[in-house]
Design a protein around this nucleic acid. Sequence first.
DNA 1: GACCATAAGTTCTATTTTAGAACTGTCAAT
DNA 2: ATTGACAGTTCTAAAATAGAACTTATGGTC
Lengths: 170, 170
Amino acid sequence: MKWDTLEEEPCSLARTVAVIGDRWSLLILRECFLRIRRFDDFQGSLGITRHLLADRLKKLVRFGVLRKIPYQEAPKRYEYILTQKGLDLYPIIMSIVHWGNIHMVDARGRPLLHEHKSCGKMFDPVMVCSECGEPLSAKAVHVHPGPGARKSSPVHASARERAKRAAESS
Amino acid sequence: MKWDTLEEEPCSLARTVAVIGDRWSLLILRECFLRIRRFDDFQGSLGITRHLLADRLKKLVRFGVLRKIPYQEAPKRYEYILTQKGLDLYPIIMSIVHWGNIHMVDARGRPLLHEHKSCGKMFDPVMVCSECGEPLSAKAVHVHPGPGARKSSPVHASARERAKRAAESS
DNA sequence: GACCATAAGTTCTATTTTAGAACTGTCAAT
DNA sequence: ATTGACAGTTCTAAAATAGAACTTATGGTC
């Protein structure tokens, strides 16, 4: 599968993965949320090769996640800042950080703590239902095909076929 | 940077990216949450090469995200199911899907809709503060070094150096 | 008994991507 | 005139991926 076929999949996860589904994009975005904006700062803090950094920044700009803003003329220099579309990635970044905090920390504990300015407390992110406000778990969610679903979704094709065969043979 | 150096970074995001930070791992996990469990079903629904699928499943088992459970003897066959550690990835998957629903859908609309069984309504996931329950935004969060932080964090090294130079020259 | 199917991989080669380092161009300051 | 900052580009070697064929174990069919 090529990266550009991924963008066209009838699946919101696949399309998002086409944008952020590689390690460097996610690490670059982490830096963006930590107020890093310039090429050499990304390069220095991440240890990414300059070649790949240029490539990934270009991709994130192309997808509208980052915007190139000039911060000086002569010589013309740009910095990369998050668009609203990019800022909306915050729940993804935070849920990734939170999972790492729970499952991947060593004996020394968390590398970073997060303070919620509104309430002044150190917090963890919690994902809740927009309708009832209760915390979400995989088991409490049922999936339905939406208007953008593919007629015959490939997602369950072979599992469905096995189910059909089982039904026929009984 | 190698994948295994990523696991040891003093950053919960980097460590999580070492586990799920490639397109196939995320797509495999999507299938897991849609109740796909078997090798050929993953292969058929994703179109991933068998080689890479075997490799990624092995990695996810190694990290304790999936567990191999025998479902028949003679010949011995296994299926892959999510551990609790794997189930805890749900907020990550959901926030990725949600971002795609908002920013990457075409004219036809969302491929999938989600129903919250507890309240019976179609919902979107919302990330809130564990302490006050308010929705989170990047701007309302302040980051502090935690107990597992590196002494001299490389994260802001060059930005800090620039700040220092600016201070000295003024 | 020979032949086909199922399931879960493994092996092979060609292509693509990435790592690592060096190089380019523009301007400012010394 | 030289040095340094900044934002890239170019180069080659190493690693990862795609795509297809092959393997192993078993059960069922002609």
